[in-house]
Amino acid sequence: IMNCCEQCGEYLPSKGAGNNVLVIDGQQKRFCCQSCVSEYKQVG
């Protein structure tokens, strides 16, 4: 599985992206930055 930001689609290095993760309905959603997390929450 490719690690990509759920919001902008930016490729995420394998281990460096652990900071910005949401778990929604048991699914891990990865993000490249906190602003993408916030945007995803607003839209979702």
Rank of each mutant, 00 (worst) to 15 (best):
L12K: 04
G18S: 03
P13Q: 10
C8G: 03
A17M: 08
E10Y: 07
G16Q: 13
F31N: 03
V43A: 12
C36G: 04
Q7Y: 06
Y11E: 15
I1Y: 02
E10N: 03
P13S: 06
V21G: 08
R30Y: 03
G9R: 02
V43F: 03
C5R: 01
I1T: 07
I24W: 11
I1L: 05
Q7D: 02
V21N: 03
A17E: 14
Q42E: 09
N19T: 09
Q34R: 05
K41Q: 12
S35T: 09
Q42L: 09
V37K: 09
S35W: 08
R30S: 14
C5D: 01
S38R: 10
Q27F: 07
L12A: 05
A17T: 04
G18C: 05
Y40N: 04
N19V: 08
C36I: 14
V43L: 06
N3M: 06
N19Y: 02
D25I: 11
C4R: 12
L22D: 12
L12N: 02
K41P: 12
Q42V: 14
Q34G: 12
G44A: 14
S14V: 11
S35L: 08
A17K: 01
V37S: 07
I24G: 10
G26R: 05
A17H: 03
C4M: 08
L22G: 08
E39K: 15
Q27A: 11
Q7H: 10
C36L: 02
C33E: 12
S38D: 10
G9M: 06
R30T: 14
R30C: 15
L12V: 10
F31Y: 08
Y11R: 15
C36N: 04
F31L: 05
Q27M: 09
N20V: 12
Y40M: 07
V37I: 00
V21S: 07
G16S: 11
Y40V: 09
E6W: 03
G18F: 00
V23F: 15
E6L: 06
S35K: 14
G16D: 13
E10H: 06
K29T: 04
K15H: 14
V21L: 07
K29G: 05
R30F: 09
C33I: 00
K15Q: 13
C36D: 05
N20L: 09
K41C: 05
S38T: 09
I1D: 15
N19Q: 09
N3L: 05
G16C: 09
M2I: 08
I24R: 10
S14L: 09
D25S: 04
E6F: 06
C5K: 03
K41G: 13
N20K: 06
S35C: 09
I1V: 12
V37R: 09
Q27L: 11
L12E: 12
Q34C: 09
V37D: 06
E10T: 00
C33H: 09
E10W: 02
G9W: 02
S35A: 10
G26D: 15
S38W: 06
K29A: 05
S38V: 09
Q34D: 12
C33K: 08
K15R: 03
E39Y: 13
G26K: 05
Q7P: 01
C8V: 00
Y11V: 14
V23T: 14
V23W: 10
N3Y: 00
V37T: 13
K41M: 10
V21I: 00
E6Y: 05
K41V: 06
V43E: 10
V43M: 06
P13C: 14
C33V: 04
K15V: 12
L12Q: 04
R30P: 14
G16M: 12
G44T: 08
E6S: 07
V21D: 12
C8D: 00
Y11Q: 15
G9D: 01
G26A: 10
L22R: 08
G26E: 10
C33P: 03
F31Q: 08
Q34W: 06
Q7E: 05
L12T: 04
E10V: 00
R30Q: 15
C32A: 03
V43W: 04
G9S: 02
V37A: 10
Q28T: 11
V43D: 08
V43T: 11
G16R: 01
L22N: 07
F31T: 05
E39Q: 08
S35I: 13
G9I: 02
E39C: 15
Q34M: 13
E6H: 05
C4T: 12
A17V: 06
I24D: 11
C5Y: 00
C8S: 03
E39S: 13
C8R: 01
C4A: 07
A17C: 09
P13M: 01
M2T: 10
Y11M: 09
K41A: 09
Y40Q: 13
G26Y: 15
Q28K: 04
V23M: 15
V43S: 07
K29F: 07
Q7T: 08
L12S: 01
Q34I: 02
Q27H: 09
N3V: 03
N20Q: 11
C4Y: 02
I24S: 09
V37E: 14
N3Q: 05
G44S: 05
Y11P: 14
R30N: 14
M2G: 07
D25E: 09
C36F: 01
S35M: 10
C32Y: 01
G18T: 03
V21W: 12
Y11N: 15
D25F: 07
L22Y: 14
C4E: 13
Y11K: 15
N20P: 13
G26L: 04
I24F: 13
N20R: 04
D25L: 02
S38C: 09
C8H: 05
C32R: 04
V23A: 08
N20A: 11
C5Q: 00
F31G: 06
N19L: 11
V23L: 05
L22P: 10
C33S: 13
L12F: 03
V37Y: 12
L12P: 08
Y40W: 12
E39T: 14
N3A: 09
K15Y: 13
N19F: 11
Q27P: 06
E39R: 13
Q42H: 10
P13E: 07
Y11L: 13
Q7S: 11
C32F: 01
R30A: 14
V23Y: 09
Q42N: 15
N19I: 08
R30W: 12
L12M: 02
E6R: 03
C5L: 00
E6T: 06
V23K: 11
V21A: 10
L22I: 08
G26I: 04
V43Q: 11
Q34L: 06
P13K: 01
Q34S: 12
S38N: 04
C33R: 08
I24C: 08
E39W: 02
V37F: 05
I1A: 11
E6K: 05
C5M: 00
G26V: 05
Q28R: 02
F31W: 01
N20D: 05
M2K: 14
K15C: 12
C36A: 06
E39D: 00
S14A: 14
C5P: 00
V43H: 03
Q42R: 13
F31K: 00
Q7M: 07
S14D: 15
M2S: 13
C33Y: 03
Q27S: 07
C32Q: 01
E10M: 01
Q28C: 02
G9C: 07
Q28M: 08
C36W: 01
L22K: 10
Q7V: 04
C33D: 13
F31D: 07
S14G: 09
S14Q: 08
F31H: 04
C5E: 03
C33Q: 10
E6M: 13
I24E: 13
Q34T: 11
M2R: 07
C4S: 15
V37M: 15
F31P: 06
C8M: 00
I24T: 15
C32P: 02
E39A: 14
C4Q: 14
C32H: 07
V23H: 10
S35Y: 10
V23S: 13
K15D: 15
E10P: 03
L22F: 07
N19R: 05
E10A: 02
G44D: 04
P13V: 01
M2V: 04
F31R: 03
N20S: 10
E10F: 00
N3I: 05
S35F: 06
M2H: 05
F31V: 03
C4H: 13
G26T: 04
D25W: 01
I1S: 07
E6V: 05
P13G: 04
I1G: 07
S14Y: 00
G18W: 06
C36Q: 06
C8Y: 04
N19C: 10
F31C: 04
N19E: 15
N3C: 06
S38I: 09
G44E: 07
Q34A: 13
Q28L: 03
S38L: 11
Q28P: 10
E39P: 04
S14M: 03
G44R: 11
C5W: 00
Q28G: 05
Q42C: 11
V21M: 09
G9V: 01
